[in-house]
């Protein structure tokens, strides 16, 4: 499934990365600990988190993640957005909690 299809099916808000929505999502990682993501996420995964600061974009780029999904209505900070645009990382958002978000992603891609 592509990032675009996931965003449409889950009605996710797209903060940036419109030109990179054709990426295929290969699994998903759920964590708010950055070292955990750094050490364990695999390239192509979608990343569900509530962290909104710029280092999230840096990690997504370094790990070649397919997209970031922010939960609970959180929005990316201005410099996060800027960094994500530069690194071509789609940043998406939902008003749902992490549990519901992860559950839906699981049903859609697994």
């Amino acid at each position: 499934m592509t990032v675009k299809e996931l965003a449409e099916k889950m009605n996710l808000k797209i903060f940036c990365g419109e030109t990179n929505l054709d990426r295929t999502i290969e699994g998903c990682y759920v964590s708010d600990l950055l070292s955990d993501v750094m050490g364990n996420a695999k390239s192509g995964m979608a990343w569900i988190t509530l962290q909104t600061h710029q280092n999230v974009a840096a990690i997504a780029s370094l790990k070649d993640l397919s997209c970031i999904i922010l939960v609970k209505g959180f929005e990316p900070e201005e410099d996060t957005l800027q960094h994500a645009v530069e690194e071509e990382i789609p940043v998406l958002g939902t008003s749902q909690q992490t549990f519901e978000t992860a559950g839906q992603v699981y049903q859609l891609i697994c």
Binding site: D32, L33, L34, S35, D36, G39, T49, Q51, H53, N55
Partner: peptide, 8 residues
């Protein structure tokens, strides 16, 4: 910020 979990 999500750092400092003793995993670095």
């Amino acid at each position: 910020m999500g750092f400092g979990a003793g995993m670095g």
